[in-house]
Nucleic acid binder design. Structure first.
Length: 581
RNA sequence: GCGCCCGUAGCUCAGUUGGAUAGAGCACGAGCCUUCUAAGCUUGGGGCCGCAGGUUCGAAUCCUGCCGGGCGCGCCA
């Protein structure tokens, strides 16, 4: 439920009351499932202010025809406060018209709720673990990580706003072969710092010079102690130091985007604590892990394929195409084997899990969903678990593919991009497309200061509100709710749009789709700019009408609330609301 | 060969989880600046919602099969 005092929530309540009354009167049978009953704005505003499908979705269960039922509901709804008319349309839609005062009351609600307008309790305090970024700790963040980072962070904020407790988590893959490679790469930089000529970085090691300072630091701390030593003497130490330094770098990169996780979970610690063994034991006891031999992969010719018996998880029982190994033939855990234990660990402290992954990991979604279903659903219903895939981002400059290969290896770093275009542009742009569609990120377009650029357009709306309020204050005019009755049809249309915000929050949170907020803000900004421009030709439609303090006060009040709403939306997206542009 | 995602106006994309006559921006045509910031606004044309079936009161939305594009498919991570 949204805050009970918002308009849509109130009328959802009135509709429920009308249905209760019909139940009491025997028109409707008791106990019908009303989950499908909605309250929405009608597609065409000419149809009214609010629309409900109640008659259509309940008709079958009531053994009535929809229009008959609609008539009965209309009679009841006509008695609800603020309703000036209730009509039936089409196959059985019920359209309500509301008195202007009902909308003006919503404007006051925005003012009194302030930054909490739109906040919902629909999450009912349930804990949701959102795991996002989880980039390997082997270098700085690059643009491949960016979209998932922004989407995950905005989703976490959105879920919080919708009444969930949220854990923002980062899974640190510090146990695989890639961190050994990292340690060796750092060792080379360490020898370099000691004065050795290392030349070109060999194939197979990380070439980026972000490792140079770590080598220097280790040289300063340990001298040449490990320069010629066997790998066994330094590998673990260098790995720990290198991973620590990488995580520091990654945290700094994330901070550039305004992202801060609550929890960094280490795969190495998970393994040290014996969690994968415990999971394996449990799975074997439930006949979900067995020793078996995999078939060679199809559609590829492999010369080095040898069938080997491995402990396999029965993911085919849960819809996967193949059972999946949890250990390698050397006895070490596969990524999946550890990941499975990791998800079980997360499920212990959360009511629901959401993972944000890059599309290149799409192939592993089924197995991890299978694992979570198996382990959390042993007794009763499995924990809700979703994997949201964010698709690839193609970097462009002036329509041409953009490459950058300077100091950090051959990828475009996130820090470089934030430096070039700014945090707000990066964040907003990443959220102006649904995440499961590929997108282009064109440097030239995203920094453009025009209405084609939604970041600019939305921020400009806020800046306009603020500058208008400043200008008004200089003239001695202030926002006031005393004479809101002076507001006309155009102003009411704006209020009707703002009133959508609480519904939008709930729908976006339920769908785990923060991009909807960005689109709503674009729509709100367009409506506001459009209204503003009425004043170009007709000075009497301006916010500031110097000779009329009452009218100005009411309009400034409206402007102030629109500004508030833009701030609320931008806050969820992690984008600044600027005072002037 | 298999899996996942996408396919909506010339282009870039939305589409309120199955609702009413499918929307917005760009581009194109016609208008609007001695301005509460024209960094903008008004207005017009433009659609086989990839194709073909199915489900029902009702489908861009759900199901099946094709077609096209992207990503991926090992004991890697």
């Amino acid at each position: 439920m949204p805050q009970a005092n918002t308009l849509y929530a109130a009328y959802a309540g009135h509709i429920a009351a009308a249905l209760d009354a019909l139940e009491a009167a025997g028109t409707l049978p008791a106990g019908l499932n009303r989950a499908a009953v909605t309250v929405e704005p009608p597609r065409d505003p000419a149809h009214g202010d609010l629309s409900t499908n109640a008659a259509m979705v309940l008709a079958k269960g009531a053994a009535l025809n929809p229009r008959q039922l609609a008539e009965a509901i209309c009679t009841e709804l006509g008695k609800a406060p603020g309703v000036t008319s209730a009509d039936i349309a089409g196959p059985g839609f019920i359209n309500l018209r509301l008195a202007g005062s009902a909308w003006l009351a919503e404007l006051r609600t925005i003012a009194t709720s302030g930054r909490d307008y739109g906040r919902s309790t629909s999450g009912a305090g349930r804990t949701v673990n959102v795991e996002y970024v989880s980039a390997n700790p082997t270098g700085p963040m690059h643009m491949g990580h960016c979209r998932g980072a922004v989407v995950g962070d905005a989703l976490a904020s959105l879920l919080e706003f919708a009444g969930h407790k949220v854990i923002r988590e980062y899974y640190v893959n510090d146990a695989g072969a890639q961190v050994d490679v990292l340690a060796r790469s750092v060792h080379l930089r360490y020898r370099e710092a000691l004065g050795e000529a290392v030349g070109e970085i060999p194939e197979g090691l990380y070439p980026g010079d972000y490792l140079v300072p770590i080598g220097q630091q280790l040289a300063a701390e340990f001298g040449d102690r490990f320069a010629a030593a066997a790998e066994g003497e330094w590998l673990a130490l260098f790995r720990t130091r290198a991973v620590g330094a990488m995580l520091e770098m990654i945290r700094a990169d994330l901070a550039l985007l305004g992202i801060k996780h609550d929890l960094f979970s280490s795969e190495a610690e998970l393994q040290a604590a014996g969690k994968p063994e415990a999971a394996e034991q449990w799975l074997r006891a439930h006949d979900l892990v067995y020793d078996g031999v995999l078939e060679a992969p199809k559609g590829k010719t492999l010369d080095d394929w040898e069938p080997v018996a491995l402990p396999l998880f029965r993911s085919t029982r849960f819809g996967d195409d193949q059972d999946r190994p949890i250990r390698k033939s050397d006895g070490n855990w596969t990524y999946f084997g550890a990941d499975l234990a990791y998800h079980f660990q997360k499920a212990e402290t959360a009511d629901a899990l959401v993972d944000i992954w890059g599309a290149d990991h799409a192939g592993t979604v089924k197995r991890i969903k299978a694992a979570v279903a198996a382990m959390t659903g042993a007794e009763g219903t499995p924990k809700p678990f979703e994997v949201k895939l964010v698709q690839m981002v193609q970097l462009l400059k002036g329509g041409q593919p953009f490459k950058m290969s300077k100091r950090s290896g051959n990828f475009v770093t996130l820090a470089d991009v934030v430096e070039m275009v700014g945090k707000d542009v990066v964040r907003f742009t990443m959220l102006t497309r649904k995440p499961d569609a590929q997108m282009d990120f064109d440097f030239d377009k995203v920094v453009e200061a025009s209405k084609d650029n939604p970041v600019f357009y939305v921020q400009y709306a806020h800046a306009r509100v603020r500058s208008t309020l400043r200008k008004a204050a200089a003239e001695g005019l202030a926002p006031s709710a005393d004479r809101l009755d002076l507001l006309g049809a155009e102003e009411l249309d704006l209020i009707k749009l703002t009133a959508q915000f609480p519904r939008l929050i709930e729908a976006a949170a339920a769908a785990r789709e923060p991009h909807r907020i960005a689109f709503f803000l674009g729509e709100l900004a367009a409506a506001f700019h459009s209204y503003w421009n009425l004043g170009n030709d007709r000075p009497e439609k301006r916010f500031i009408v110097s000779q009329d303090a009452n009218l100005s006060g009411a309009r400034l009040y409206l402007a102030e609330q629109i500004g508030q709403l833009v701030r609320n939306g931008l806050a969820l997206l992690g984008v600044e609301a600027v005072e002037e542009m």
